[in-house]
């Protein structure tokens, strides 16, 4: 028999590390990690584009692996490390990847951006010098409706090369 306190709608206590900080929360069994991050922790940088695991906008790092946060229960992430788009810039400085994406005009409307950044960060962590084909393959589970992907792929390759692109916007 199920104990009454673990029935449907009962709240479960979870504790996890998000962008290096210990965070706690009370969630229902059905609460996804994405909804937990957005609604309870206010980390709205992680976007929900489909809620059935196809678009990739909600991708976060879960124990260092790229993961769709709409397909993970918050309760299943108890005790895990989570990194979101908000954790990419450190001390107000953009990461090299973010900077290269900016320089490359990688994105347009910005909605898919967090998922691509996280997926690309995961790729570069594992393979710092990917080929274009490897970048396209790694990003093929993230949908962008605006760009046709070329600017995104170039951004990742630029980050990998550590190439500084001319950015007139700073003058």
């Amino acid at each position: 028999m199920l104990e009454p306190e673990v029935g449907q709608g009962a709240l479960l206590s979870i504790r996890l590390q998000v962008n290096g900080e210990e965070r706690e929360g009370e969630v229902e069994g059905r609460t996804t990690l994405a909804d937990f991050l957005r609604d309870q922790l206010g980390l709205t940088g992680t976007h929900l584009g489909c809620e059935h695991g196809v678009c990739g906008a909600c991708t976060v790092l879960l124990d260092s692996l790229p993961t769709r946060s709409c397909l993970v229960l918050a309760a299943s992430a108890d005790g895990c490390r989570v990194e979101t788009v908000e954790g990419l810039a450190r001390d107000g400085r953009l990461s090299r990847l973010q900077q290269a994406m900016w320089d490359s005009h990688s994105f347009q409307c910005g909605f898919c951006t967090p998922g691509f950044l996280i997926q690309a960060a995961a790729l570069l962590a594992e393979n710092p010098t990917p080929t274009e084909a490897e970048v396209r393959h790694a990003l093929s589970g993230n949908l962008c409706r605006c760009t046709g992907y070329e600017s995104i792929v170039r951004g990742v390759l630029a980050a990998a090369e550590g190439r500084e692109l001319a950015g007139e916007g700073s003058k």
Partner: peptide
């Protein structure tokens, strides 16, 4: 001149750091 140059977008710093504000982000 700025016109004619691939100036970096002023909107991107916000979007790249997860600080965009879409309707679903407002409570």
């Amino acid at each position: 001149r700025y016109t004619g140059a691939s100036v970096r977008r002023v909107e991107d710093e916000r979007l790249l750091t997860g600080r965009g504000t879409y309707v679903a982000d407002v409570r």
